[in-house]
């Protein structure tokens, strides 16, 4: 059961962090960062399978989900920004966390721009000239 495995790893890591944080704050923070990346690695494996299933479904049933890859990109950007901002907030640097979130939103907007354009074009095409 990989889930229970990961849970126990996280609990052990939490205990280690508490011990290390007493003596040395900076290394404690680096340890939290490391635990975060460890969990992220675990999630990535699962997401990889999910994405491959999605691709097979779309290709086999040729129901062309229009912008499937942009959706995945947006999810990826959201994941990373959330990860970074939570880590920064954990190191009680809330102001920088907000900046990271703003950057993330901007990049999501940048990625999703073509979809907006197609939506606007379709809307305009409905209006009779």
């Amino acid at each position: 059961m990989p889930f229970l495995q990961m849970l126990s790893v996280i609990i052990v890591a939490a205990i280690l962090i508490i011990v290390v944080r007493e003596k040395n704050h900076s290394i404690g923070f680096l340890l939290t960062l490391l635990t975060g990346t460890l969990v992220f690695f675990f999630i990535l494996n699962q997401i990889g399978e999910l994405i491959s299933v999605f691709q097979q479904v779309t290709s086999r049933m040729n129901v062309s989900l229009l912008h499937l890859d942009t959706i995945f990109k947006v999810i990826g950007v959201a994941y990373i920004t959330e990860f970074a901002s939570q880590v920064l907030r954990d190191a009680n640097l809330a102001s920088i966390a907000i900046k990271v979130e703003i950057v993330g939103k901007l990049f999501i907007l940048l990625i999703a721009l073509p979809i907006f354009i197609t939506v606007i074009e379709t809307l305009l095409s409905f209006i009779p000239q």
């Binding site: 052990v12 962090i17 011990v19 290390v20 040395n24 290394i27 635990t35 690695f41």
Partner: peptide, 13 residues
């Protein structure tokens, strides 16, 4: 990667 975790904690202590 768990060993990495223990390594870092060990170095810190």
């Amino acid at each position: 990667d768990i060993y990495l975790l223990f390594q870092v904690a060990g170095i810190g202590i």
